[in-house]
Design a protein around this nucleic acid. Sequence first.
DNA 1: ATCTCGGTAGAAACCGGTTTCTCATGATTC
DNA 2: GAATCATGAGAAACCGGTTTCTACCGAGAT
Lengths: 358, 358
Amino acid sequence: MSPAGATISQVAAAAGVSRATVSRVMNGRATVAPELAERVRAAAAALGYSPSPVARSLALGRTSTVAFVVPDLSNPMFQSVLRGLGQAAAKEGHRLIVAESNEDPAEETPLAVEIRRRVDGIVLAASRLPDDELAELVPRLEPVVLVNREVPGLDVPSLSVDHRAGVRDLAAHLFELGHSRLVYLAGPQASASDRERLHGLRAAVCDTAGAELVELRCGSGFADGQAAVPAVVACGASGVVAYNDLVAFGALSGLHELGIAVPEQISVVGFDDIPFARYTTPPLTTASVPQFDLGEQAWQRLWVLLQDGPPQHNVTYRPRLEVRGSTGPAPGAAGGEVTTSQVADNRGPTVDPSPSAL
Amino acid sequence: MSPAGATISQVAAAAGVSRATVSRVMNGRATVAPELAERVRAAAAALGYSPSPVARSLALGRTSTVAFVVPDLSNPMFQSVLRGLGQAAAKEGHRLIVAESNEDPAEETPLAVEIRRRVDGIVLAASRLPDDELAELVPRLEPVVLVNREVPGLDVPSLSVDHRAGVRDLAAHLFELGHSRLVYLAGPQASASDRERLHGLRAAVCDTAGAELVELRCGSGFADGQAAVPAVVACGASGVVAYNDLVAFGALSGLHELGIAVPEQISVVGFDDIPFARYTTPPLTTASVPQFDLGEQAWQRLWVLLQDGPPQHNVTYRPRLEVRGSTGPAPGAAGGEVTTSQVADNRGPTVDPSPSAL
DNA sequence: ATCTCGGTAGAAACCGGTTTCTCATGATTC
DNA sequence: GAATCATGAGAAACCGGTTTCTACCGAGAT
């Protein structure tokens, strides 16, 4: 193969020194005489030598590579996390392996375990595994950082999103606008974030006089949201809470096709605030989670662990309500000025004082 | 560290055989007596042994990993290629390293070279390198597959898109609709695809009586498209040809904000057909390139090379004109029924009989 | 009964680095 | 001037596998 560079032995021979010395020079160990070091560098340059990362990995017991394991890379939410993670890792000279489990929980464990052997650490995003299986998996993956998923009893570094609060803000926003009958377009069954969002929404509806909630099994993609539109219309709700932005987009698109005006006739909200959300027509009201930051933070956490640093406090991101054009006063509502003040600027990470408590 | 499994020596000792025998059993070499093999398997299972991929990589000289190097991962176009590549590689038991060069041509060469040492092959997408530098880089990367970029004099496996034809189809579509004054929102300077698209567009305009073209330096993202809107309006064109879908989205959004109706007042077309394109309002007319396929094909090409297979014919994808709602008759045009027949179903890869010829 | 052959499995070399151990050298100290 | 010590660099072990080489064994052929 072409890119098979010179080996350390060849450099050693060319410079007339031992391999140990070459190694020391390449790694900047100070215990080499300047004159020798220069000779070694010259030989290395002449041969175009650079140490084999694979051989180094074996000798050092670390690969300078980390992995990102995710159920579905087609979701822009995860793509943003991926970028944040990848760029942050690159700054520290680490490479990133990406692996998709294709929304198949059964595949997740073997995939993660296999991949773990090739890398120094793993970032596991939005695992679709049941709590018990995840709790079993995590120790086999250490060091690992969980993103968008916590394990109740387990003390593992994780970056989470307060889905309940996010969805509560969205619901409050809709109630304020006069919507009383909401429909939830639910995400994948195995998704923990779907459960959280649903529970948050139920709670919000319970707490609000005269509010009703219809729950529709849906999915996590465009097509799912679009397909759900007839059912949405049939159920008579005026406010649609989609599992995520993608589903909301699908709903928006389906409603548009049916000639139903958003937000005049129906209001729609999403979750995540993926980059496209501000560019739809109308722009999507959503609960904004700082995806890129999540990736960067995940790296930061993992990096500390890789250096045997002290465990960091876990962080829960409180989504920020992002009010845009897809929500408006309910059709029959008494109208009047809408106050969007209530839920204001509460962005930024919140330190969770008791990481292992639910 | 936790996931440090047993080593081959431990298994050998436990089974009372040599390491060579364990290795043979693990790799299914037939030359081991059934009874011994069983003993080895039992020992391996008992110890939870699985061979170290790093050690294997060193011994075998291959890593079962490939890399995807791309200038900007925030573009959904590349994300789709990434997924196609990753999924196809996974089916063959290979892992994928992703690396972003952040649109910085100077970073590309060292990045690719460094990464090449950790993987068996590289897929290099939309390189921003000048032809001569790329021609110099490619041999150091072999085996390599180029996506969305060709090198004129060089015989290297590449998957390309016929940008000129795509843009010509788009222009023809607009001319048919009565648009005579077009504006092109140009992409990154270093982008070869931008040059191709621009040339194609110029040619189309030249060939059409009464057609005019305004060229605006723009960029490759949403924000760029949006920022260009005032200039678009000022230039008086009725048809906007954006460098890519992202830019088109930005334009769509900016025009909407200004209250300019699309397609009634201005028509907009993009390029790529990223997944979102069909869900904007109005849905975007664009030149559709099969991004996922591109990724899969890139793997297929690379896989053949990794097995010392014969060089494959290069493939040029002819984008398919995807007419959607963002284009309509020009405002002052004589109207009448619009015929969208002309450029019909010409999708699918085209074998390029002379790979090295331009 | 001896020679040869095919098949098994262990010993050892190898992949390309890093690091410990050891020894030789020159400087410092009493 | 001899003993002590710090320093620099080579030898060798090691990381955890794979593979070639070789020795041994029993079976079939002569």
